[in-house]
Measured scan of single mutants.
Amino acid sequence: MSIQHFRVALIPFFAAFCLPVFAHPETLVKVKDAEDQLGARVGYIELDLNSGKILESFRPEERFPMMSTFKVLLCGAVLSRVDAGQEQLGRRIHYSQNDLVEYSPVTEKHLTDGMTVRELCSAAITMSDNTAANLLLTTIGGPKELTAFLHNMGDHVTRLDRWEPELNEAIPNDERDTTMPAAMATTLRKLLTGELLTLASRQQLIDWMEADKVAGPLLRSALPAGWFIADKSGAGERGSRGIIAALGPDGKPSRIVVIYTTGSQATMDERNRQIAEIGASLIKHW
């Protein structure tokens, strides 16, 4: 067993022997301040990774656009098919120029040779490549099948209805392509620590998230040296922004954090800054 596999296998073990965790309302004060600064709703939840206990939450059962955070769930569904012998990570998928959609920095470079399922998941999570996500959605049967996968996990809230990039439209009061912070946090925890996926697939999923290259201005910008984070960000229309993450000190994750916002007129930089400040408060009061 590799060191990384050992780390993920012992996530519940280490967490069980940690000192009790206590909620700190100071972080919620910052979440509410972010709402004021952005002029928009902000949803927040913080779960203990081992027990699933909610440590703090704000608007945990209000719907927010998922945006690209759905790509972690998508690759979880792909990995479940791999575990069941219905898919192979090494299978190569070929596609054409007509398949390319807006923001496809990886797939646009491989029109000639195609990409493997493993490479597509890596591109979808680490670079948020939209064509990679659409190609992977095709392998599982489309958005409705991802929703069905989530329902089978016990998540009857999260739903995907459309493809990239239309799913980022974020129309107010439109339930399409949305989740709730509580539902997303619980589902992410199941994917990373539950028995739904094999140990190898859980490790692969967290490795992809740990290698995320496009979430630097968010929670990662607030992390002290030595902290662990595996995350996936999302951005959408109407001032929408979000991030889902597993993080913790001492090089291992111990909490799940989900943050979503929508309806702001603020710039992307300002949305990023507010999420980073929430992260800084979380870490300060850990």
Rank of each mutant, 00 (worst) to 15 (best):
Q37V: 15
Q274P: 05
Y44Q: 01
A225Y: 12
D177C: 03
V101P: 02
M115D: 01
Q265F: 14
T262D: 09
E145T: 11
D174W: 02
W227F: 08
T267K: 12
G142S: 06
T187N: 11
H156N: 14
G114T: 04
S96H: 11
S96W: 12
R41V: 09
A235I: 04
S221C: 11
G226A: 09
A200N: 15
A276P: 01
L218Q: 03
M184K: 01
S281A: 15
T107S: 11
K190P: 03
K284E: 15
C121A: 08
Q265G: 13
G236C: 03
Q86F: 10
V82H: 09
R159L: 05
R91M: 06
S240I: 01
I125M: 11
E175Q: 14
T186I: 15
I259N: 01
V117D: 00
C18Y: 06
D33Q: 15
T193I: 14
I229E: 02
D212N: 08
E166A: 13
G263P: 04
P172D: 13
Y103P: 07
Q86E: 12
L136P: 00
D231T: 04
T139D: 11
L150G: 05
R118Q: 13
R63H: 08
Q86T: 12
L73N: 05
E210I: 14
P20C: 05
L218W: 02
Y44W: 03
L111N: 06
K213H: 12
M268H: 09
F70G: 07
D250W: 10
A235Q: 04
K109M: 14
I206A: 14
D33I: 14
I283A: 08
E164D: 01
L120Y: 02
A77R: 09
P12V: 11
L160Q: 07
K190H: 13
L120S: 03
E62T: 12
A276C: 12
W286V: 02
R63A: 07
A230E: 01
P143Q: 06
T147C: 08
G39R: 14
V258A: 09
R92G: 06
L160Y: 02
L196I: 15
I259L: 10
A15W: 15
L49C: 08
L38T: 09
A230G: 12
G114L: 04
P105D: 04
D36H: 11
L219I: 14
R41N: 10
T178G: 03
G236H: 02
G114N: 05
T158G: 05
I93G: 02
I11C: 13
R176G: 06
P105S: 05
L160K: 02
A225C: 13
F14W: 07
L188P: 00
A246I: 13
S80C: 09
L223S: 06
T107N: 03
G76M: 05
L38V: 07
R255I: 06
S2R: 09
T112I: 15
D155M: 01
W286D: 02
V31E: 01
F13M: 15
W286F: 06
T69I: 04
